[in-house]
Design a protein around this nucleic acid. Structure first.
Length: 265
DNA sequence: AACGGAACCTGAAAGC
DNA sequence: TGCTTTCAGGTTCCGT
């Protein structure tokens, strides 16, 4: 269930494993995540291709190859991993072998996507500014948002507003900014929007530092929950000890502190 | 145009 | 214990 930090880690890993290397073998079994070419066609075009460049924008990855472009979206459960050549990976949807590495894409729920094409993808170009690649301009975000009647939490999840912010980063940023997630975006002052921007930057930096390492673990897979509020409903707020509360917005869970994110204004 | 809700999947955890 | 329900960090489509 990857958001910007997890996809950024994936990009860094893929650069170490694949950049400037030639794919010597590709295995692409048929699955619903594939677009742009048939599985055999993909295998053919990937085999012998040199990986020139790997970029991330929001939750999308773009691998520029000598024979085309491979786009990857991790959906909810997608993950790029490196394995020994004869290891079997459950839920493997793609396998790219280079000299010295066997790289697999695994995705149990298959909400991800793998697109091989020559031309650009609209999804890449409609993305809003990426907090890491472009940085967020508080004034520009305020202008973009200050007429929306929707709640700020839902607006932050809109990928055309900001690229890469997902359910965790939105909740974490609002907690850091002490802004109530149900506030209408248009009710926010420029100062509050600026606080949210600092919250997003801080939360992404924090999550990236926490995830540094060879493989990404998602919260649902066990391990410690490093977050301030995400999946911590009922636990004490680490600032004021008030019990964190969980609500539902746009079908998604939002956790917040009813006291330090009280609905003022 | 904008919004809520269902749909797409599988597996783990909670509920009974 | 075992069956059932709920829920998951994403996106898209459909009806109102």
């Amino acid at each position: 269930m990857p958001e910007l930090p997890e996809v950024e880690m994936a990009a860094r890993n893929l650069r170490r494993w694949l950049a400037k290397k030639t794919i010597v073998a590709a295995r692409i079994p048929p699955s619903r995540i594939l677009r742009g070419a048939s599985p055999p066609e993909m295998e053919q075009r990937l085999t012998g291709a040199r990986v020139e460049r790997i970029e991330r924008r929001g939750k999308w990855l773009r691998l520029t190859l000598s024979t085309g472009t491979l786009w990857s979206h991790l959906g909810m459960t997608g993950k790029w991993v490196r394995r020994a050549p004869d290891d079997e990976e459950k839920y493997e949807r793609a396998r790219l072998d280079v000299r010295g590495a066997s790289v697999r894409y695994r995705d149990p729920r298959m909400f991800g996507r793998l697109v091989l094409s020559d031309d650009e993808m609209p999804e890449w170009h409609t993305l809003g500014p990426d907090p890491l690649v472009d940085g967020i301009d508080p004034r520009a975000l305020y202008e973009r948002v200050h007429r929306s009647a929707r709640s700020i939490k839902e607006v932050l999840l809109d990928q055309t507003v900001l690229a890469g912010v997902g359910n965790i980063q939105a909740a974490e940023a609002l907690w850091r900014a002490r802004v109530n997630p149900t506030r209408a975006a248009k009710s926010l002052s420029a100062t509050e929007v600026a606080a949210i921007v600092r919250g997003i930057d801080a939360s992404i930096a924090y999550t990236l530092a926490d995830e540094a390492g060879p493989e990404i673990t998602y919260v649902e897979e066990g391990g410690q929950n490093p977050f301030m509020v995400y999946a911590k409903s009922g636990q004490p707020c680490r600032r004021c000890k008030t019990r964190l509360r969980q609500i539902r917005q746009g079908g998604r869970a939002t956790v917040f502190c009813p006291k330090c994110q009280a609905k003022r204004s």
